Computed example of a mutant assay.
Amino acid sequence: MFNIDLEGLLSLVIAVVLAMSIHEMAHGLVSYWLGDPTAKMQGRISLNPFAHVDWLGVLCLLLFHFGWAKPVPIDASYYKDRKTGIIWTSFAGPFANFLLAFVCILIYFLIFRLTPQFALTGIGTFIMSTLSTSATLNIGFGLFNLIPVPPLDGSKILFAFLPDDQYYRFIEGSPFFMLVLILLIYMNVLNVPLAMLQNNILQFFINISSMILGL
């Protein structure tokens, strides 16, 4: 009665959980490097998905392509330069997603080059599907978080030119900003530009991987 692609669903769940986990871990790790022990003390500098994943956020991402993880606790008072620390910590999450996407693509083509027969087996097909899904989803997740609307990371990075007092008030966000974000998602205003950027970045990573591997 229901035609469910369990293999595809499992690949997607793995990709979503991994994207959220590495994104949040990167926030915590960079914050720790900048002197803030909060994330480390709470066990958030880890790839353990149970430390980061909000399962309602995962479900929403699977169903509506909009989700979230548990925010990593950050105490900017530990930073030597609070504003700069917030910017670097915020950028770490999307950067980790882009880096993981590139690694997935590189491994994908490496498997095809070294063991093309394996790529056509049952387990090989699943691994290739998971790598492909992870690459695409991580790029999308990284781009989404760079949208300059609080509470997303992009607002903390792209509005760094504001005076300090305005900057901190702005990045704290408000119900108004969240409403704007929800409306943008609901009206599909972001779909076309995000899809275009996602495809361009994906193709760029593919080209770089092909050059590295001599394909």
Rank of each mutant, 00 (worst) to 15 (best):
R44L: 05
Q42F: 14
F159Q: 01
W55S: 02
T136E: 08
V13C: 09
K83D: 01
P193L: 05
F141H: 02
V17R: 01
Y108T: 10
T121E: 03
F66A: 10
F141C: 04
L213E: 12
A96R: 05
F95E: 10
P148L: 11
M196G: 06
W55P: 00
F204D: 11
G124T: 06
V149I: 15
G142N: 12
T125Y: 08
L61V: 07
F102V: 12
N138P: 06
H52D: 01
Y167A: 08
I22G: 09
D75K: 00
G35I: 00
N199Y: 15
I4M: 08
L120K: 12
D54I: 07
A92T: 07
I147R: 03
A15E: 11
G122F: 05
G67E: 08
L10F: 15
D75T: 00
L184S: 03
H65P: 02
W88L: 11
T121Q: 02
D165Q: 15
H65S: 15
F95L: 15
S31M: 00
I157T: 03
W33F: 10
I212C: 06
G8L: 11
N3S: 14
I182M: 08
S155W: 06
F95I: 13
G57Y: 00
F176V: 14
V16Y: 04
V16F: 04
D54T: 08
L9W: 11
V149C: 08
L181W: 05
I14A: 14
Y78H: 01
L179W: 12
N97G: 07
L12S: 14
I123R: 09
I185N: 10
S11I: 13
L62K: 04
N145K: 07
L106I: 13
I74S: 06
P193M: 07
L56R: 00
I185R: 11
I107F: 05
L110V: 13
I185D: 07
L183C: 08
A195D: 14
C60V: 10
I127K: 05
M178W: 10
I127Q: 08
M196Y: 15
T89P: 00
P148I: 02
F91A: 15
S77C: 03
I206Q: 09
A101T: 11
P116M: 06
N199I: 14
E172K: 15
L63G: 03
D81K: 00
P73L: 02
N145A: 09
P71K: 02
G124Y: 02
L194E: 03
F141Y: 08
L62E: 05
L63H: 04
N97W: 07
